[in-house]
Structure formats: structure tokens, C-alpha cells
Simulated assay, not measured.
Amino acid sequence: MKSLFTIMFLLLAVLAPGLVNAQSKLTEEKKKELQEKFETYKTELNLTEAQQEKVKVINTAYFEELAGIKESGGSKLAKLKAFRKLSDKRDKEMKAVLDKDQYAVYQKMQQEMKKEIRSKRT
């Protein structure tokens, strides 16, 4: 398990420079949203320095892929499926980075965000 985690970390370290360039494709509004989300995670989850770097990489990749889904020409159902798959991927990556207590807080934050989004729809 530890070697898998090490391999994932090294892979992220190798890919991180490409993600930084990809981030420049985000609009200023999305860059600001990304930074705000990171600051929220950093504070609410009490992230260590090592965790901060990993979470930043995960969130940058998530926002980039999310922007791609939003811009795609697929149906709403296809976009919803892609979004759910992307969210599941991010949750698994976050679970690998966070400890048990931090992940519980993260899940609670995600549930609150879902409730907020649903309340805006109605």
C-alpha cells in the first residue's frame, strides 16, 4: 500500500508541471474559485504542508476536467455521468491523501455543497 502511495505521489510530481500549464486555461473566475476551494480545504481540514501540495494538484486537475465537461457538446445525461465519475475519482484521490478524520470532514463538506447546489435549483 505504501509503495502504491509512493508511486502515485511520484506520478503526480511528474505530471504537476503539466497541470500548472493546464491551469492557465482556466478563466480568472475559475482560478479564483480554485484558490478559494483550496483555502477552505487547507483551513477546514487542517492540512499539513505535504497534504497541501497534493490537494492542490488534485483540485487543479479536477477543475480542469470539470471545465472540459462543461464545454463538451454532450447531452445533459452524458455530462452528469462524466461529472459523477470525475467526482468519484477526486474523492478516491482525496481519501488517499487525508487521514480518517480529515476525510470525514471532507465528506461532510461535500454533502453541504450538494445541499447548497440543490437549494439554488429550486
Rank of each mutant, 00 (worst) to 15 (best):
S3F: 05
S3D: 07
F5E: 09
F9H: 12
F9I: 06
F9S: 10
L11D: 08
L11K: 09
L11E: 07
A13L: 13
L15T: 11
L15N: 09
A16T: 14
A16N: 12
P17S: 05
G18T: 13
L19S: 05
V20R: 11
N21V: 12
N21C: 11
A22H: 09
Q23N: 14
K25S: 15
L26W: 05
L26G: 06
E28T: 12
E29V: 13
K30N: 13
L34G: 12
L34N: 08
L34D: 12
L34Y: 11
E36T: 11
K37H: 13
K37Y: 14
F38D: 07
F38H: 08
T40W: 02
Y41L: 08
K42W: 02
T43M: 09
N46I: 02
N46K: 14
N46W: 00
L47E: 06
T48F: 05
E49V: 10
E49T: 11
A50P: 07
A50K: 14
A50C: 01
Q51E: 11
Q52M: 09
K54I: 11
K54H: 12
K54N: 07
V57P: 01
V57L: 04
T60W: 00
T60A: 06
A61H: 04
F63P: 03
E65N: 11
I69N: 07
I69D: 04
K70R: 15
S72Y: 02
G73R: 08
G73I: 01
G74L: 07
S75R: 04
K76E: 10
A78F: 05
K79S: 05
L80I: 07
L80S: 13
F83D: 10
R84I: 05
L86S: 04
S87T: 12
K89S: 06
D91G: 01
D91V: 00
D91N: 10
K92H: 05
K95Q: 09
K95H: 06
V97T: 05
V97Q: 08
K100L: 02
K100F: 00
D101F: 00
Y103W: 03
Y103V: 03
A104I: 01
A104L: 01
V105T: 14
K108S: 03
K108N: 04
K108T: 00
M109L: 13
Q110W: 00
Q111R: 09
E112P: 00
K114W: 02
K115S: 15
K115A: 15
E116S: 08
I117Q: 08
I117K: 13
R118Q: 10
S119V: 03
K120F: 09
K120P: 01
R121W: 08
R121L: 14
